[in-house]
Amino acid sequence: MTALRGWRIFALLGVTAVFACLPLFLPNDYVLQVFFRIVLFAALGLAWNLVGGYAGQLSLGHVAYFGVGAYGMAMLYAHHVPLWLSVLFSALIATGFAAIIGSIVFRLRGPYFTLSTIAFAEVLRLSVTNLPAAGGAIGLSTPALFPPGAFWKMFYLSAVALAFVSFLVNAWTSRSRFGYYLMAIREDEDTAAAVGIDTANYKLRALMASAFLTALGGGLYGSAFQFIVPDSVLSGEISVQIAIITMLGGAGTLLGPVVGAVLLLAASELFKNKFQESHLLTYGILIVIVVLVLPEGIVGGLKQLFQRKTKPPASVAPLAATPAQGGD
């Protein structure tokens, strides 16, 4: 935990505590649900960041792991596996699934990699839709992880816990040998391989860790909304949303996914209540503006601005780099 020394660890604990105490101040369940979604997607963004940010492998198929988490939990539970064990098992299944997918897709690069992650997720969605054993298009009811009384509070706190763990994994990655290898792969995979990094192996490890966390998120999400259909927990939109949250906040940065989730989801909920149908348009426009004006994401952009003014400590430099621009 070299990354978290001194004030940083206090800051992290402080922020987590603030997040954890939020339900005390929220007026009602609806706002709590919105916050649940925000924190959950921050966790998902952090999980994605391992693959998409540090390793620079741009997966648009993460909904596959999310969906395995949700569906696995519901189906295992239906087969009499204890509730929390089924959450854990489905996350392990997703990890195994990631190992299989990864061993195939990591041979591909650039857009081919991205496209094949989409293809895998789509094959999964279509299979679940077509197979009556998985509920088909009709969907499955999911078991509730928490009793009705403190339902949303508990889900919210679980999401905070997941985000906290994901953040720690990210923080460790950003300063560990493992993380440096991933960043080396991101900057130039051929060079990384040439200096003796087992690139396939490291990418795969990152993906498996990411899939595990994503599937836990999927399990929470599936249980919180109590009913799942392929078009909700296996929809490609979720993959895109996770990636965009991270890119908006700043891929390959620690705080990026958190900032992205807060901004995008809060904006989306507010726009939706204000503009009805037109809210989707604002989403598209936001993406285009970010790509044109803030290609490093908000945190990345702020960092650059900051670094121009004061000389940064050398160790922060790799964080500011994004897969978009290569090293700086």
Binding site: N28, V31, F225, V229
Partner: peptide
């Protein structure tokens, strides 16, 4: 989306 519908119940009733 089903999950958004669930959120809708809360928004309309609680808020």
């Amino acid at each position: 989306k089903p999950d958004q519908a669930v959120q809708g119940v809360s928004k309309l009733v609680d808020q």
